[in-house]
Amino acid sequence: MAYEEVKVQTPLYLKILPVLSICAFFGSWEFIVKTGIVPSTMLAAPSEVIKLFIVKLTDPNPDGAVLSQHAWISLKEAGIGYLLSLLVGLPLGLTMGWFTTVRGLFRPVFELIRPIPPIAWIPLCIFWFGIGLWGKVFIIWIAGIVPCVINAWVGVGMTNPTLIQMARTYGASDWQIFTKICVPSALPMVFGALQIALAYCWTNLVGAELLAADQGLGFLISMGRRLALPQMVVLGMVTVGIGGAVIGVLIDAVEKRLLAGIRR
């Protein structure tokens, strides 16, 4: 069908319900904590979290840093690890898709590393790098590299074979076919990888910081637990969630702009 019949205006109740549902969610959360149905040692009311948020903007106690510093550390680790994984993963995946030799050399190692959850590297990282920045960057790098390689590889594999044969009849070399045909064909999948890898990096960052850190949002969460301050735990979780959402939206926007040229 060339013509789409567009539904006439969404009914009003469908617009109100989401708002109501969000309000009900926060309302009942506040309610069950304030009335003591859930003890305040287990969960903090939203109002408590907001209060702590304002305090944490300026007060480094009791965990040693203000909120923005924690967030900055986390962002830095995630950013470096993410960029490094793109830098290594995408070229590796692309070449693995096209050159048999590269595939032959790297596939066994890759297949070995692939099923290991990045979190499992933490003990080795602590051995190798201590609990500083680079240990976490390594975990995030491992986390990001797997989706990068897989997507780039699959992307190259999805190249239209007719295009490759066409290029061969014109006498293009393997390298020319790779750069001129395979890489552009793989681009949509590569952009997909950017997003998946980022989400993956962000998840594993929290894991890495929970276990081995002295700063960062994950550390904030685990300090909240050790100090039995649920509002601090929730604050950390919310900040991480917001961070993830913001990054997701950013990548979405970038991807849309970049892909606009490809998808017409």
């Binding site: 989401p18 708002v19 549902s21 969000i22 969610f25 040692t41 287990m42 969960l43 979190i119 962000w202 998840t203 594993n204 960052l205 929290v206 894991g207 929970l210 994950g218 969460i221 685990s222 909240g224 637990r225 039995a228 649920p230 735990v233 929730v234 950390g236 979780m237 991480v240 969630g241 917001i242 993830g244 959402a245 997701g248």
Partner: peptide, 20 residues
Amino acid sequence: PVFDLFKPMPPIAWISIAIL
């Protein structure tokens, strides 16, 4: 809407709450 609130939160961030 409620699901979308929880979606971007990495599951590992829940560990502390889970232990509490």
